[in-house]
Design a protein around this nucleic acid. Structure first.
Length: 202
DNA sequence: AATACAGACAACCGCTGTCAG
DNA sequence: TCTGACAGCGGTTGTCTGTAT
């Protein structure tokens, strides 16, 4: 059974409230955690009368109410850390978040999703340009090797568009990347080279 | 001024791992 | 060893807000 509360309210499902939290609910949860500490999330509803599931309470505390949370935009430094760690760990958001004090896995996940989607479009455009480039060469009946100039900006875009190191390297070789960092040594020393990559002044 | 669109954020859902009984 | 409760994680969706047309 669903019961809609209207503006500022939530929805009651099987006795649990869902939807946006109210300031009153936030206060109940904050007071409880300040007294009892984190954990035992399922006890909160019984102890405080808060009609929220343990899961919902934990999420609200971790992502919004925790006092050590950093507010505001992701800084360029944090962005570089996220990109580097994502290249290394993939979608292990909680692992990445541990390297960014005050940032939550949810926040990083949302940030990546927004910017990754943008990068994905960039990748498609780059592939289209590559195809056009290739067609042009065919049309001109030129038999020379194709070469894409890999500026630092392009390299960073490729990393942004890649799911992982393997895909990135595959793509860079696919487009015939020409860059001083594109060599065997770079491929096999990914940790060190990611550092070098993000030190590029772009 | 109205509308469409994209970005940012908050919250939920389903799954998995852990641990106590 | 098995099982259920719980916490945590990643994926996904919904909503709000700012900006472009």
């Amino acid at each position: 059974m669903d019961c809609h509360f209207g503006w500022g309210g939530g929805t009651l499902v099987d006795g649990w409230r869902k939807g946006p939290w109210t300031p009153q609910e936030d206060k109940l949860l904050t007071d409880y955690v300040n007294i009892h500490g984190e954990g035992r999330w399922n006890s909160i509803s019984k102890a405080t009368g808060l009609r929220r599931s343990g899961k919902s309470c934990r999420l609200r505390w971790v992502n919004y109410l925790r006092p050590d949370l950093k507010r505001g935009k992701i800084t360029p430094q944090e962005e570089n850390i996220i990109l580097e760690l994502h290249a290394r760990w993939g979608n292990r958001w909680s692992t990445i978040a541990r390297s960014l004090p005050g940032r939550t896995d949810n926040e990083i996940k949302n940030y990546w999703r927004t910017h990754y989607k943008k990068a994905k479009s960039t990748k498609i455009i780059m592939q289209q340009q590559e195809h056009q480039h290739h067609d042009q060469q065919k049309q001109n009946n030129q038999d020379e090797m194709k070469e894409v100039v890999m500026t630092p900006q392009v390299i960073k875009q490729v990393v942004l568009a890649s799911q992982d190191m393997d895909e990135m390297m595959k793509y860079m070789y696919q487009v015939g990347a020409s860059s001083s960092i594109m060599n065997e040594e770079f491929y096999w020393n990914e940790d060190e080279n990611l550092g070098r990559l993000w030190n590029l002044d772009i």
